[in-house]
Computed example of a mutant assay.
Amino acid sequence: MGRRYTNADEMLISAAQKISVREHAGVFDKNGDPYYWHPLAVATLARNAGEDAEVVALCFLHDVVEDTDRTLDDIRLELEPIAAETGHNLDGIIDGLDAITHRKNEPRVKYWGRVRDHRYSRAAKQYDIIHNTWPERLARLEPEDKARKESKYGDAQDFLGYARTV
């Protein structure tokens, strides 16, 4: 049986999910699917693996700062009351979100090193890569996009020490 999350855990996870849904509303991925399905799948993988509530929350948030105009401070301010009430590690979530956010023109190796060095981001990135390399998702891409993703995520898995899924 998987991990049992407390009411406090569910409050944190739900707050992160609401942010993700709101910030990705109306956005679609390259396959034409609602973008929000991606963070939902990533968070579901983390939840099913029994990760801490902070990791599940980070999985919902992992693309928000990178893909929207929201900042780390915006996320902190929104989650602060819930973290204060529930006792969750908000600094860890925000630091993990900072670590997992790829900066414009940043070399991949620098990015992967930052991800690797933070416990929450390292876990969240693993589930992100697993979902991004699902054969069903890759099969729906144009051959060029599929090859690019397989190469990018295969290199990331090698660098981060994950088992290869591509």
Rank of each mutant, 00 (worst) to 15 (best):
A25W: 02
E80H: 04
K149D: 10
A43H: 04
C59D: 05
D52P: 12
L72H: 13
D73P: 00
A124Q: 12
V166I: 13
R164M: 04
I100G: 04
E66Q: 14
L72R: 08
R137Y: 13
E144L: 12
D69A: 05
A15S: 13
T71G: 00
V42W: 07
S151A: 13
A15W: 01
R148Q: 09
A147G: 04
P34I: 03
L79T: 06
A147H: 09
E10D: 06
P143W: 03
N105H: 09
K110V: 15
L77P: 00
V42Y: 07
A147E: 14
T44R: 15
P143S: 11
R70P: 00
G26E: 12
D155M: 06
D91I: 08
I130N: 14
N132G: 11
L90C: 06
E150F: 01
M11C: 08
E23V: 06
T68L: 02
Y120W: 09
I94F: 00
G92C: 06
G96R: 03
D33A: 13
R103F: 01
V27M: 07
G154A: 13
P143Y: 05
D145F: 08
V56L: 03
T165Q: 11
E144A: 15
L79H: 02
G96S: 04
N89T: 02
D155R: 11
R4K: 09
E54K: 05
V56G: 04
G154T: 14
E80S: 12
K110I: 14
V115P: 08
I82G: 00
I100Y: 02
A163T: 12
R4A: 10
S20K: 06
A8R: 06
L72A: 06
H131E: 15
H88L: 05
T71F: 00
W37N: 12
R47T: 02
E78I: 09
A57D: 03
Y111S: 02
D29I: 07
D98K: 04
D33H: 13
G154S: 14
K110R: 15
E150A: 10
N105A: 04
V115H: 04
P135G: 14
A83H: 01
P135D: 14
K104W: 14
V115E: 08
R47A: 06
E136Y: 03
E150L: 09
G2C: 11
F60G: 01
H62K: 05
R114E: 12
I13L: 11
H38N: 02
G113R: 15
D158S: 08
K149I: 10
A57V: 03
E136T: 11
L12S: 04
G92Q: 05
Y5L: 09
H88R: 07
A8C: 01
D158G: 02
H102M: 09
H24P: 05
D145V: 09
G32M: 07
S14Y: 12
I19W: 00
D29G: 08
Y162H: 03
P34M: 04
A156P: 10
R70Q: 06
D33K: 14
L97N: 04
G26P: 13
V109D: 14
P107N: 09
I19S: 01
L90F: 04
T71S: 10
R70I: 02
